[in-house]
Design a protein around this nucleic acid. Structure first.
Length: 799
DNA sequence: AGCTGTGGCAGGGAGG
DNA sequence: CCTCCCTGCCAC
């Protein structure tokens, strides 16, 4: 009797809405007669104890052609043919993990020429996820965030050098601070114990306290790698898994908008690892206004750093440990407390996503939204025994419509934007990927939209802050999913992609925006700048004031097709319109906000950002004398080396490639040399700490001439000595002129030269100099507009 | 194994 | 000088 026959069928395993599953862990190396196994951890209600059970399961993948497994032992798998004529028509299930991995290797080997595994097999990502998918279950059902037992961890290390390095014999762990959300904390003190005993104590405590989640700030980039290396040297096994197993580690990477971060993932059986550093990076992708990503900067930014907390600079830690160890202990404890608050503040949406989507919490917090949506589709297709499509090849070609019709200073300003433009189009114009034969795209999107509206309504009615916070986290996790439906259409590797549908959505969006522009103009408004789903405009004089502006927008709404709603997003006293995606707004509270990389980019020197900021203020106030005075003052300070610190003129850049990649690209002439990488390599040489992709390098320019080649004349910022300033003043004076150049369009040429020049021989007079503006007619919009373009275009908004 | 997209601006290096 | 190409950063 084959042991396999009593395995639960992955396709038929029932759903249970209230399992309170805290974690699921695949058991890879069990030579079990019951096939592949996973261990499931459930939290009991009430006292919150944990029960663990082993369950059998099939690991599986989808395959387009069963004959690709020819030659692979038939008794090691079984297959099920799926309904439909989609591409992946077979579900291949295995009795053990080793057979699963062997089969994947077999596919790689048997498919040498045009056949490649990536094209013919769809591997369901994440092993624990595979189990959850086949069972139809997800984590944390019926649980609140506070039901989780979360532990925070922070280590302090000792070094005689600039940076601590776990591979250097003299460097070591001196403190391990632990804390949890149940009001417990503990410090393992390096004065009482040697390093090996400290690590053993940490393992013992983690097992005894038994947290569901381990949190830390940059825990994957620093604390865990350091502990792993020191434990290896002390020959200690880190048996911190719920089943006393050691953590599984693997190199991987995560993307935050344009930035990729390589790191070593760290998986603890039965627990979830949350790195608050990643949560902060993800948060700032949307906000883009955080001054820094360190724990202290983040805690201050969110406003929950204790006022009397202890601060110690990284370079001071070893000295403080020698001179005042109690102070270092207080510092480490303050750190774990901040980490707990940061995690609580930023984890909500991943927690609620983990309740919806068959992806474990720890993984959900580090994977993007596209993978989450796809898992919903796959789960449902699988549940209905339908085959899955193969992704389409190609690219999307159309994006949002951006334009500018006026540059200069203007006001008052109204900002109107289409609420949820792309989701609204997808719901109201019957958008769906051609491959989605079950039509889930529309249904899931609609359902998520309804859930979000319900959560937002409930949030507004909620009386208590905790409830409101929870509902806000819920609605924002719905929003994340809703917004990535569009991205999924144009994503080359999504299995339900459809590039022509992505283009259709963008095109309809462009057409709607053009219609709105013309309607605003027809109503007497003056359109300044538009981008994708929003319009800045000056309302007609009879329609100024909050109420009249709202009414004006309501009249616009009457001209919109069903399901498309324009919202009143903001009103401003004045606007400086500079270029597409680049402008400044003066609010009725007299606060200035800046948008766009050309006006306000983190890669610009701080003195330049400040100059631009203050110049815009004067420009908006039409203060020409002030502008000239600002230029002279800034110029003078540069010439006199009058800096608050090196940060005022240094430049910071993020390394987006590995150093190896950079070097080979340069050798092959694929890219020019760059100061940031050259300095990063120097620094690595000096400190012995290797450069990581995503590291930031801060440097300044030396030499004499204003046009020196930067990579040959650069220095790391911390090498600058204020008593012997060696920065290249000619270069920084030229940079000032680069910044001033931005204001050239706002003046007549000779006036511009007078304002932004040091030559004051005849005295400077602002007399008669006014801020100029430029206007562009709406002709181009008119020509492209669907309502006016005649029969050349054939888009009838179906239904 | 993982990984949403297009549009836009600025700066640096390389080569005409 | 100028243009071209690449990267980095940003808006949505």
């Amino acid at each position: 009797m084959s042991a396999r026959t009593d395995l639960k069928d992955p396709l038929l395993f029932g759903k249970d809405p209230a399992e309170r599953i805290v974690a699921v862990h695949p058991l890879f190396n069990r030579a079990s007669s019951r096939g592949a196994q996973v261990r499931v951890y459930r939290r009991l209600p009430g006292d919150g104890g944990i029960v663990e059970e082993d369950e059998s399961c099939f690991p599986f993948f989808f395959l387009s052609d069963i004959s690709l497994l020819k030659g692979f032992a038939r008794d090691r798998f079984r297959f099920q043919e799926l309904n439909g004529d989609g591409y992946y028509r077979f579900l291949i299930a295995f009795a053990s993990w080793s057979s699963y991995w062997d089969a994947l290797r077999h596919l790689d080997q048997s498919t040498d020429k045009e056949v490649r595994r990536a094209q013919y097999a769809y591997v369901v990502a994440g092993t624990a996820q595979q189990y959850l998918m086949q069972s139809g279950r997800t984590s944390f059902k019926d649980m609140a965030f506070e039901d989780l037992h979360r532990m925070q961890l922070d280590i302090e290390t000792y070094t005689e050098q600039e940076f601590s390095n776990p591979r250097r014999p003299g460097d070591r762990i001196i403190l391990i601070a632990l804390h949890d959300n149940r009001g417990w904390s503990h410090v393992i003190d390096g004065r009482d114990l040697d390093e090996a005993a400290m690590i053993r104590e940490m393992v013992r405590i983690i097992r005894e306290r038994d947290p569901d989640v381990v949190e830390g700030h940059n825990i994957l980039g620093f604390d865990f790698p350091f502990i792993v290396e020191r434990a290896r040297r002390c020959r200690i096994e880190l048996r911190i898994g719920r089943d006393e197993s050691v953590p599984r580690t693997f190199r991987t990477s995560i993307r935050f908008a344009e930035r990729a971060v390589d790191y070593t993932a760290f998986e603890i059986a039965g627990r979830h690892v949350i790195d608050t550093y990643f949560l902060v990076l993800a948060y700032d992708v949307v906000k883009r206004n955080m001054p820094g990503y360190g724990l202290k900067a983040a805690a201050r930014y969110f406003g929950f750093a204790a006022e009397d907390r202890t601060y110690i600079a990284g370079s001071e830690i070893s000295r403080v440990w020698r001179e005042d160890p109690e102070r270092l202990i207080r510092y480490a404890l303050d750190d774990v407390i901040d980490t707990e608050r940061l995690a609580r503040h930023l984890s909500g949406s991943a927690f609620y996503l983990a309740q919806m989507v068959p992806i474990p919490y720890g993984q959900a917090s580090r994977t993007g939204p596209a993978a989450k949506i796809e898992s919903l589709f796959v789960r449902e297709y699988l549940g209905r025994k339908e085959s899955l499509p193969r992704s389409e090849r190609g690219t999307q070609s159309i994006g949002g419509y951006t334009d500018i019709f006026f540059t200069g200073v203007v006001g008052p300003i109204v900002y109107a934007d289409v609420e949820s433009l792309y989701p609204s189009i997808m719901l109201n114009y019957d958008v769906r990927p051609e491959s989605d034969r079950l039509g889930l795209f529309h249904d899931i999107l609609q359902r998520l939209t309804e859930l979000r509206i319900r959560a937002k309504t409930a949030m507004k009615e909620a009386g208590n802050d905790d409830v409101r916070g929870e509902l806000d986290a819920r609605q924002s996790s719905y929003k994340i999913l809703i917004n990535s439906f569009y991205g999924q259409l144009g994503f080359s590797q999504a299995i339900f992609n459809d590039f022509s549908e992505a283009d259709r959505v963008a095109q309809i969006g462009q057409d709607l925006l053009r219609t709105i522009i013309l309607e605003i103009a027809n109503g007497g408004g003056k359109v300044i700048e538009v981008d994708t789903d929003g319009v800045f405009f000056v309302p007609p004089t009879e329609s100024t004031g909050r109420e009249a502006e709202a009414n004006f927008i309501e009249r616009l709404n009457a001209t919109m097709p069903p399901g498309i709603r324009i919202g009143f997003e903001g009103r401003y006293k004045k606007m400086l319109s500079y270029k597409k995606k680049n402008y400044a707004l003066l609010g009725y509270d007299d606060r200035l906000t800046y948008k766009g990389s050309s006006l306000m980019s983190r890669s610009n020197e701080r003195f330049g950002r400040r100059f631009v900021r203050e110049a815009i203020r004067r420009l908006i106030d039409e203060d020409v004398a002030g502008l000239h005075e600002l230029y002279l003052r800034t110029r003078d300070r540069i010439a006199r080396h009058d800096w608050d610190s090196v940060e005022a003129f240094s430049r910071s850049e993020t390394l987006k490639e590995s150093v190896d990649q950079y070097r080979s690209d340069v050798e092959r002439g694929r890219r020019p040399k760059a100061a940031s990488y050259e300095l990063a390599m120097q620094r690595a040489e000096k400190t012995g700490r290797s450069v990581q992709k995503g590291d930031r390098v801060t440097y300044y320019v030396v030499g004499q001439a204003h046009d020196v080649t930067a990579f040959e004349n650069c220095r790391l910022a911390d090498e600058w000595n204020p008593s012997e300033p060696d920065e290249n003043s000619a270069y920084y004076l030229r940079r000032l002129d680069d910044f001033a150049q931005k204001f050239e369009p706002f003046f007549k040429p000779h006036e511009f030269r007078l304002i932004f020049s040091p030559e004051d021989l005849f005295g400077f007079s602002p007399e008669g100099i006014a801020v100029r503006s430029h206007e562009r007619p709406l002709d181009a919009v008119l020509a492209e507009s669907p309502a006016h373009a005649g029969a050349s275009r054939s888009e009838t908004p179906d239904r």
